[in-house]
Amino acid sequence: MTDTPSDPRASARGAGSGPASGRVANRVAGPDLASLIACPHCDAVYRAVQPAPRARAVCARCHTVLIAPHRQAGQRLIAVALAVVVLIGAATLTPFLRVEAGGMSNATSVLGAALAFSARPMLMALALAVAALIVFVPVLRALLILYVLTPIVLDRPPARHARRAFRLSEALRPWSMAEVFAIGCAVALVKISDLAQVEFGPAFWMFSALVILIVVQDTFMCRYSVWASLDR
């Protein structure tokens, strides 16, 4: 983190609006570290100011959104996390796809596809890594979000070790690849549709819905607001 001179160019932008609606973050270099926020991309440091409703605090240097609070965001994030757990749990137990070619057919689930290489000892680590990235890590992140946000939404003190749980959830975010798996499978199935008859199972549509939920989660997640609530 680098300190930068005072610069009031950071602005708030309403959702979908073009011009700046007001200043919500001023670049500072002061001793009050609790009131500062650093841009995660360019390390510019600002004095954190709560934006107006439907506004965002944007970095003046790289235009990264720093603070973007939403009304009832906690309730929506809890609902999304619960939906993620249910969808992934059901997708691992139901057929993902069925392929038929030359009079022969085969169907598999998501977990079965991830562990397809586990029969070979040399590929056991790869099979476990694939299963973790598309099943276990997304479920763990959703459970951690539920653990952190539920007391906050209920106006109760944060749960024990909530900061560590949220930090772990953020560390696992790049490794949660359930939506990447769904998009990759869709592209691959389009390419083999001319060679075999492909039927999508319930798990495929569950993972398709999961892609939308991940986008919704990233839209409503204001990490600064979560950290501020944990500090209080």
Results as ranks from 00 to 15, higher is better:
Thr2Pro: 13
Thr2Ala: 15
Thr2Cys: 10
Asp3Cys: 13
Asp3Gly: 15
Pro5His: 15
Pro5Phe: 09
Asp7Pro: 04
Pro8Leu: 05
Ala12Val: 14
Ala12Leu: 15
Ala12Phe: 10
Ala12Asn: 13
Gly14Ala: 06
Gly14Asp: 08
Gly16Pro: 04
Gly16Ser: 03
Gly18Ala: 05
Ala20Asp: 10
Ala20Val: 14
Ser21Glu: 13
Gly22Ser: 06
Val24Gly: 13
Ala25Cys: 10
Asn26His: 15
Val28Asn: 14
Gly30Gln: 14
Leu33Cys: 12
Ile37Cys: 02
Ile37Thr: 06
Ala38Met: 02
Cys39Met: 07
Cys39Trp: 07
Val45Pro: 01
Val49Gly: 05
Gln50Phe: 07
Pro51Ser: 11
Pro51Ala: 11
Pro51Val: 07
Pro53Glu: 11
Arg54Ala: 14
Ala55Pro: 01
Ala57Met: 11
Cys59Pro: 05
Ala60Leu: 08
His63Phe: 05
His63Arg: 10
Leu66His: 02
Ile67Gln: 13
Ile67Lys: 11
Ala68Ile: 04
Pro69Asp: 10
Ala73Lys: 05
Ala73Tyr: 08
Gly74Glu: 08
Gly74Met: 03
Gly74Cys: 04
Ala79Gln: 11
Leu82Cys: 10
Ala83His: 12
Val84Glu: 09
Val84Trp: 00
Leu87Gln: 14
Ala91Tyr: 01
Thr94Ile: 15
Pro95Asn: 04
Gly102Glu: 07
Thr108Gly: 11
Ala116Gln: 15
Ser118Asn: 13
Ala119Trp: 12
Ala119Tyr: 12
Arg120Phe: 10
Arg120Pro: 11
Arg120Met: 11
Met124His: 10
Val130Tyr: 03
Ala131Tyr: 03
Leu133Ile: 08
Leu133Asn: 02
Val135Arg: 05
Val137Asp: 00
Val139His: 02
Leu143Thr: 13
Ile145Ala: 08
Val148Ile: 05
Leu149Val: 11
Pro151Ile: 06
Ile152Ala: 03
Arg156Ala: 09
Pro158Met: 10
Ala162Cys: 12
Ala162Tyr: 04
Arg164Met: 14
Phe166Gln: 03
Arg167Cys: 07
Arg167His: 09
Leu168Trp: 04
Pro174Cys: 07
Met177Thr: 04
Glu179Ile: 06
Gly184Asp: 05
Leu189Gly: 13
Lys191Ile: 11
Ile192Arg: 07
Glu199Asp: 12
Gly201Arg: 00
Gly201Asn: 01
Ala203Asp: 01
Trp205Thr: 08
Met206Gln: 12
Ser208Glu: 15
Ala209Asn: 14
Leu210Tyr: 02
Leu210Glu: 04
Val211Ile: 12
Val211His: 09
Val216Pro: 03
Phe220Glu: 02
Phe220His: 06
Cys222Asp: 09
Val226Asp: 00
Val226Arg: 00
Arg232Ile: 12
